[in-house]
């Protein structure tokens, strides 16, 4: 098992960590999810038949585990809001967290892009990260997400539009404050 782990780690760990981090934007959660992904991968490695490439198989599991994480978070959030009956107020409170150090030291434009990822859907964010941060091809991205290539292209286009809109709005707001 250790050998399998080491092989996977050496080949994909940096990309895997990167993918999950940009999906959840929090290092602690990323570490938990990464561990969970390896557990699932190592448990099912014997049954991997090589129908897809090892890389796309690993990332499709990573995406699956990450989406499960989001769902659990949502359920948890809903339970808390239901308990306090704060739903209306609660939903209007934006989830804010400090920028990771690596992002905080970047210029304003990159910070804006990073923050704008929050406005994308999970699907859009997956496509953006796989295509532009991980440099996956359209075909590889389609395989990871279990989509057709045309859906990847459409989602990619919508995601970029979404990011542009967010950045334009933020820029307009900043300009009006300056004036």
């Amino acid at each position: 098992m250790k050998t399998t782990f080491e092989e996977l780690y050496d080949k994909y760990h940096t990309d895997l960590y990167q993918f999950i981090f940009y999906m959840v934007k929090n290092k602690e959660n990323t570490e938990d999810i990464v561990q969970e992904v390896y557990v699932k991968v190592l448990e099912s490695y014997q049954t991997f038949k090589g129908d897809s490439s090892e890389k796309t198989w690993l990332f499709s599991i990573a995406r699956h585990v990450t989406i499960d994480f989001f769902r659990k978070q949502q359920r948890k959030k809903k339970r808390i809001l239901d308990f306090f009956n704060w739903s209306e107020k609660g939903e209007s409170i934006p989830a804010s967290q400090a920028l990771p150090e690596e992002i905080a030291i970047q210029n304003e434009e990159l910070k804006q892009v990073f923050l704008a990822l929050d406005d994308c859907t999970e699907d859009q964010r997956s496509v953006i990260i796989l295509r532009y941060i991980q440099s996956f091809s359209i075909k590889e991205t389609a395989s990871v997400l279990g989509w057709t290539e045309s859906k990847v292209k459409t989602t990619q286009h919508r995601a970029i539009s979404q990011l542009k809109e967010h950045i334009d709005t933020s820029t307009r707001k900043e300009n009006s404050v300056d004036e």
Partner: peptide, 12 residues
Amino acid sequence: ENKIKKLPKIED
């Protein structure tokens, strides 16, 4: 797209 590509590598 270029800006996204410039987002930093996050190290574990």
